Amino acid sequence: MNGAGNGAGTAFRETSAEPRTESVPFSHLSLELGHLYMEDFIEGPSRLRRHFAAVRPWVDAARAGLGPLTGGKRPRISTCFLIDDYFSRLSTPAELIPPLLEAAAEAGLTIDYLARESGCAVADPAHRDRAELAESVLHRLVESPPPGSNGFRPPVSRTGWLTNGRRTPAQRTSAALDSTGVVWQPPGETGARGHSVFMDVELWSGPEEERLWSCAFLASVWQLVRLGLLRDNGAAVLTPAKWFDREFPAEWDALPPVLQLNKAAAPFTAYLTCSVLPARFLPVEHAVRVILDQVHVEAEAVQQVADRSAGEGFTVPAGVVDRTSYVFPPGL
């Protein structure tokens, strides 16, 4: 309890009533070495070896692109890999993870952190990080109303759809009653340069009590977690659990949402992210950028990044979406 002033005018307030935003450690870059579906793993070790062989040159390029820091210091870079255990579970951790790590090692790569995609929806109740992350990010969305909007469009919290501009009007105008027929208006991207690239993103399907979150929305949560910008009542979320030289269980829910596999790894969260992904993820990641551009992030978390990066002389873009980058290697 803290006090302010003297005598009868003294005011007291509970220290516990003051929200505290937990600090997290930061690397300079979080480098994602891939995101594969269960179907990819079922193809066997040769599929994994091809993946990491194709990823390796781009990982080297991403590392080199970061360059030396002020004073000649080496940048802190951590690697991660996201496994889809949310949409399907065709194999077990014990069967799937060891061949994955072996294939990465054959290509000269080390996976520092391994994450379960289901943890980006709701982390397992058996673990400390139980926050319903997808739901919390949904509540942080602040839609950008397009120019000329009349408020007719229902909010994203009701529809489950988020766009980067103005949709084609659903209602007919009075001109539709003319003999010339219906007047059609095209959609438009907010802030388009010359021509529009309009996108309408589905965030979930199914009824509210049984939502199935979309890949794009979970990938947005994944980016926010890697950037160290999500909190649950001020507490850090999806903090990695140390998993050194341990066997992998037969059930996915027996694993923490994020594992630290490398004792010498730089921090999981980072000022910037880079993801090396198959080209089929390009439309998904376009959708991720649309979502991230409309997420309200806690000011304290943003300020922590600004203060820490400034202290290191490392420039971090102001916009969250500008802190993310991608590589889509041909043939991956």
Rank of each mutant, 00 (worst) to 15 (best):
S196H: 01
A126G: 11
A175D: 05
I97W: 04
G165E: 01
T190Q: 06
C215S: 03
I111W: 06
A123F: 02
V183T: 14
A104K: 00
A105C: 05
L133M: 06
R166N: 09
R172T: 04
E95L: 12
D178T: 15
M199K: 09
A216G: 03
S136D: 05
S149R: 04
V197I: 09
A104T: 15
A131L: 08
G165K: 00
E208Q: 11
P146H: 10
P93Q: 02
F198A: 02
D178P: 00
L90E: 08
A176S: 14
A103W: 06
L100H: 03
A192S: 13
P169N: 04
N150D: 15
A170N: 09
G191R: 03
E209I: 13
S118Q: 13
N150G: 05
S174H: 13
W213M: 04
F152A: 08
L96V: 15
P146W: 08
S144P: 01
A115D: 02
P99Q: 06
T173N: 07
E189L: 06
A192H: 15
Y86S: 01
H139F: 12
A123N: 01
T110M: 05
V156K: 00
P99D: 03
G119H: 09
N164D: 13
D178Y: 12
V197T: 11
L138P: 01
T180F: 10
I97H: 04
G206F: 15
R130P: 02
T163P: 02
R211M: 10
R116A: 02
Y86C: 00
G108C: 05
H195C: 08
F87K: 10
L101Y: 11
P187T: 13
R130V: 09
L109I: 12
A104F: 03
I111D: 04
S157Y: 03
E106N: 03
Y86N: 03
V156S: 01
S91F: 11
A175Y: 10
W161H: 14
D178N: 12
E132F: 15
R158C: 09
L133S: 01
F87Y: 12
T159S: 05
E102C: 09
G181C: 09
D124G: 09
V156N: 02
L109R: 00
V201K: 00
V182T: 14
A115N: 05
